[in-house]
Simulated assay, not measured.
Amino acid sequence: MHTPVSPRYLALDVFRGLTLALMIIVNTPGGEASYGPLEHAAWHGFTLTDLVFPSFLFVVGAAMSLSMKKFSGLGEAAFLKSVARRGALIFLCGYLLYWFPFFTPERTLAPIASTRIMGVLQRIGLCYFFAALIVRYGGLRGAAVFSLLALPGYWWLLHQFGDYTMGGNAALAVDLAVLGAPHMYHGEGIAFDPEGILSTLPAIVNVLAGYAAAVWLQHKGRTRHTVATLLVAGAACLLLAYGWHALLPVNKKIWTSSFVVCTVGWDLVILAVLVAAIDIGGLRFGTYFFEVFGKNTLFIYLLADVAVIILARLQVDGVMLYRWLYQTLFLSWASPLNASLLFAVAYMLACWLVAYVMDRRKIYIKL
């Protein structure tokens, strides 16, 4: 049975919303304790949490399959202006998020000299921009060629100019030379940026993979054969990734090429399952919950992060409001692991309520 192709796939919208929901949960635990799947791998290795960000890039690429159709009628100058503007705005939102609330407790302007430059939104903006250029001027063939050059090329750079340790990898060397330690992430105990400059190169492939999967779906339609092909492609990527792991460890923090292939594999499998259940099987129970998140993805992501910063700044009886809410509402009756998870889920649901109100009022914020 062949289902007629529509401009949008509900499965992709649900995938985007599911990714955002999980991203908020893993980013906002109540306390230090978290279940293993909700923490990043310490270094080499892979957890559910490590899949969230690359999945976000994957769905950015899938969404790009629709926007590129709109751009097809634009001249070169208008196209370049549009994608550069969007990429720059996403990058700027990420940068301002790290600078927020812009002022110190002493009401002086927060120093830009120590503001982190790269980050999650910054990587999304850069990957979107370069992926759009590759697709515009090279099409699917250009995307394939870039991927086949970028992944082995990045492997070669890591092997040739460093090792696979946190303090000795080539990606760190580039970031230190270009960004400088004060502008990098320090949560690992040293100046090290998991969303740095060089490691953005292989991350572009995650976006291109999402674009290719969406274009292929639109071309072939929603059939059982389509689902089977996605599953086979995903399984092949996973086999390649875990075989490659022996030579180049799967590592999210330096975004190794094997990590890219691994995450693309899982995303293809997840997409196949969602297409089978939703677009072919007609499943609708619970899908609206994730659709709501998927309609204002960037705004809700920013809201979730800004609200955390505000909750950390406000205090109740000398304790930051974020921690006070966790301790009073959850830790007072649940174990640390469960309390931390319940707080994160409750926080995600609070963000969802905002997204729901926006959807009911037809408010959609796009860049």
Rank of each mutant, 00 (worst) to 15 (best):
M23W: 07
T229S: 13
A33V: 11
H159I: 00
D267H: 14
E32D: 10
G167W: 04
L89S: 12
S72C: 05
G234A: 08
V260P: 07
V269D: 00
I197K: 13
A132Y: 08
W99V: 09
L239M: 06
L12E: 12
K81T: 15
L121M: 13
D193F: 09
Y164S: 03
A312V: 10
A21D: 00
H186Q: 12
A144E: 06
G282N: 04
L341Y: 13
K253S: 14
L48G: 14
G282S: 05
V14M: 05
H245F: 05
I280F: 05
A307E: 05
L18R: 09
H219A: 15
M166L: 15
Q122P: 00
A350P: 03
W216K: 05
F71S: 11
R123Q: 10
A113W: 14
I197R: 08
S332P: 01
L179H: 07
I197C: 10
D163I: 00
G234C: 10
A181M: 01
L149R: 08
G318Q: 03
N27F: 06
L325K: 01
L148D: 06
L126W: 10
P336R: 09
A181L: 01
L121R: 03
L198N: 07
F130H: 07
I254K: 02
G153F: 03
L230R: 09
V354R: 09
H2A: 15
R224Q: 12
L217K: 02
D317M: 04
F343R: 03
L302A: 12
L208R: 10
G180I: 12
L240P: 01
T165M: 03
P4A: 10
A173I: 02
S82V: 11
T49F: 01
W216V: 08
S6Y: 09
G196K: 11
L239V: 15
V26K: 04
P29I: 05
D305V: 06
F46Q: 12
Y9M: 12
V354D: 00
H2Y: 15
H44P: 01
S34L: 13
E195V: 13
C351W: 04
G139Q: 12
D163H: 00
I270T: 03
F330K: 05
T328L: 13
D13I: 11
M166D: 04
M68R: 10
A143F: 06
E39M: 14
F161A: 02
A272E: 05
S65F: 04
L239R: 01
L238K: 10
F56T: 03
M358T: 13
Q327N: 10
G168K: 02
G45F: 14
I310M: 06
S258R: 09
I112S: 02
L208W: 03
Y35H: 07
L38K: 10
P4K: 10
H183E: 07
G180H: 06
A170Q: 01
P194S: 13
S34W: 14
A346Q: 02
H183R: 15
